[in-house]
């Protein structure tokens, strides 16, 4: 039985080794090199790139990334929990409601980000409407700030919150709610004291699954932040293009990977990875 199985797993191993682990190994090696004059890397080996991660100039960007990702995750929780609760209680229609969440999610991240740019830019629909109605004379600066980046992140990754929350809520034993009601709990109090504590695994999974892509986001801060709100992802990209400092870009990438892996392991340890997709 095992020979066929091993043969079937082999191509995936080959792809992952050559196109995932080998590239990571290359940047791991690059992170220990000296920057080349025209991009690329050169000898000698040095730890300078890793030391520079602690430079206040870059720490600000790291902290901002954590803050923006954290706020976006919290807003996703506020928006996602009631929606997941609604879907879980929707009876026969729950699949339809769930699909309504999933379908736009898989439909072009780039276009969904652009849709907000279309709404929010200076000549965008919101400003045009506000000015046509005479509510404002000058276009409001709705785009290219932290708020716009958070909005883009929430819009992009909200389904990652809804799906695991739904999975937990849908499995929840109805008898517990009935017991709470029998014992005199009103619906709000049952929500606070029974439903929310019991959905802790879903909240945990959803939060990690939203936080991870938000922390490593590149496209959203690039387009919605317009180069003014830089996150780790933009800093990485910058090192490989304009700044031409591959070793530092590599060290940054690996640091980001380590954070992501720690978060993922913490989640898997607690058994929350189910319902991931």
């Amino acid at each position: 039985m095992n020979r066929l199985r091993n043969a079937f797993l082999a191509p995936a191993w080959v792809v992952f080794t050559l196109l995932f682990f080998a590239p990571l190994a290359v940047i791991a090696a690059y992170s220990l090199a000296t920057r080349g004059t025209y991009g690329g890397v050169s000898a000698p080996a040095s730890l300078e790139s890793w030391v520079r991660l602690a430079d206040p100039l870059y720490l600000v960007i790291l902290l901002r990334s954590f803050a923006l990702a954290g706020v976006a995750t919290f807003i996703c929780l506020l928006l996602g929990f009631p929606l997941a609760l609604f879907i879980a209680r929707a009876g026969a229609r729950r699949n339809l409601y769930l699909q309504l969440v999933i379908v736009p999610f898989w439909t072009s991240f780039l276009v969904r980000t652009y849709a907000w740019m279309f709404l929010l830019r200076e000549t965008g629909l919101v400003n045009s409407a506000l000015m046509a109605l005479g509510l404002t004379r000058e276009p409001l600066p709705l785009l290219y700030n932290n708020g716009a980046v958070i909005l883009g992140l929430v819009y992009g990754y909200l389904p990652f919150m809804v799906l695991p929350l739904y999975a937990t809520l849908e499995r929840m034993d109805r008898a517990l709610l009935e017991a709470a009601a029998d014992l005199g709990a009103r619906s709000w109090s049952a929500l606070w004291r029974v439903v929310i504590p019991l959905s802790a695994p879903g909240i945990r999974a959803g939060s990690v699954l939203v936080f991870i892509p938000c922390l490593g986001a590149y496209l959203t801060p690039d387009l919605m932040g317009g180069g003014k709100t830089i996150m780790i992802g933009n800093l990485v990209q910058n090192q490989f293009t304009t700044a031409r400092d591959w070793p530092f870009g590599s060290a940054l990438s690996l640091a980001l990977m380590v954070i992501v892996m720690v978060l993922l392991m913490a989640l898997v340890r607690r058994g929350g990875e189910e319902g991931m997709l």
Binding site: F20, I212, G216, V260
Partner: peptide, 21 residues
């Protein structure tokens, strides 16, 4: 583990790693 890791690897990291490779 590799599958999950590839799903959560930030795209920009995957992109520059592949470029460097």
């Amino acid at each position: 583990g590799s599958l999950y890791l590839s799903l959560v690897t930030p795209e920009i990291v995957m992109g520059i790693a592949l470029l460097a490779f």
